[in-house]
Computed example of a mutant assay.
Amino acid sequence: MQESPQQAIERYLRSGEHDAHFRPWPGDDYIAQARYGSVALRHALISTVRHRTAHAELPAALPELDVVAFTRGKVGPMVRGLFPVHEQDSVLDVLGRSVVFLTPATIDAVLEQTPWLSTAWDLANLYLAGVGTELLADDAPNLLGLSEGTTCYLSAEYFGAPGRFDDFLVHEAAHIFHNCKRRTIGLRETRRREWLLEIEFAKRETFAYACETYSRIHDFGQGLRARQTLLAEYAQGPMPADDRLDVDEYLDILREAVAARNGWKRILARCSPSQGG
């Protein structure tokens, strides 16, 4: 039996799933049904999020934050370590504009404009978690950030991250390197260099986690001994709860990075595709 529009809305709100053909919705053809259904599902999502966050409070740091300057400061060491001097400004410009903090001022537009309904549902839960509100489903993904294309979405929870080695902004920004083509930002592209950085598909999360943790070690530790001490502290755990991550390999990459003159390049080398691949 065909589900009704109301049933379709209820299913989407509790699971993020919807009929890919938008059959519950009126319209003379697929395009009309998809347009009608997408608007209805997004409006229902926005309404539900507004209701659950009517009294949400944000960290004091957010309202006055210069997000572009803040982001450039966070990702600057990573960009300078991974790119030649003549490319750094272009990459920093992209990353500086990449971060969107999910707040009451931004969430409606984000949920309306993000291309995929499934991503909108994930972002709604990211926002709800960030303001300490009930998620849309018990099994909703427990996200700390989310990147899509050249945009990194972060919740207000970023400013209350409990771990001294956590930096979700750097983690999500690192994913942009394999999501953005070089020609998109005016950089020279070759047959072997199509993306900002060539990262092996299976090691994308390893790369992002390694960049995140190394950025904190790099910030806290001045000199080899201090950074080795910080890594030893970090290695005592807990490790990221992510089954895409080989913890032994991850820690080995960090050891190489800490010992190297340019640790960022060591991380990249360990996560790049093999030359014969």
Rank of each mutant, 00 (worst) to 15 (best):
I9P: 01
I9N: 00
E10F: 00
E10Q: 15
E10S: 12
E10C: 07
R11I: 06
R11S: 09
Y12A: 07
Y12W: 05
Y12L: 01
Y12D: 09
Y12Q: 06
Y12R: 09
L13T: 11
L13C: 10
L13V: 10
R14V: 14
R14I: 11
R14Y: 04
R14C: 14
R14P: 08
R14T: 15
R14L: 12
R14A: 15
R14Q: 15
S15H: 03
S15G: 13
S15A: 11
S15L: 07
S15P: 01
S15C: 03
G16H: 03
G16R: 01
G16L: 08
G16S: 01
G16E: 00
G16Q: 02
G16M: 00
G16A: 06
E17M: 10
E17F: 07
E17C: 08
E17I: 02
H18D: 04
H18G: 00
H18M: 09
D19Y: 05
D19V: 05
D19A: 07
A20G: 10
A20F: 13
H21N: 12
H21E: 12
H21V: 04
H21T: 13
H21A: 15
H21L: 15
H21P: 00
F22V: 10
F22D: 06
R23Q: 13
R23P: 01
R23D: 09
R23V: 05
P24R: 10
P24E: 06
P24W: 08
P24S: 06
P24C: 07
P24Y: 02
P24V: 04
W25Q: 02
W25F: 11
W25N: 04
W25C: 03
P26M: 01
P26C: 05
P26A: 02
P26K: 02
G27P: 04
G27N: 03
G27V: 01
D28E: 13
D28N: 11
D28C: 02
D28Y: 00
D28G: 13
D28M: 09
D29W: 10
D29N: 15
D29F: 07
Y30N: 02
Y30T: 01
Y30C: 00
I31G: 03
I31A: 12
I31T: 10
I31M: 11
A32E: 13
A32L: 11
Q33H: 13
Q33T: 05
A34V: 04
R35E: 13
R35H: 08
R35V: 03
Y36M: 11
Y36K: 14
Y36A: 13
Y36N: 15
G37C: 09
G37F: 05
G37K: 12
S38A: 13
S38G: 12
S38R: 14
V39D: 07
V39A: 14
V39R: 12
A40P: 01
A40R: 15
A40D: 02
A40T: 14
A40Y: 02
A40N: 09
L41Q: 02
L41P: 03
L41C: 02
L41H: 06
L41V: 09
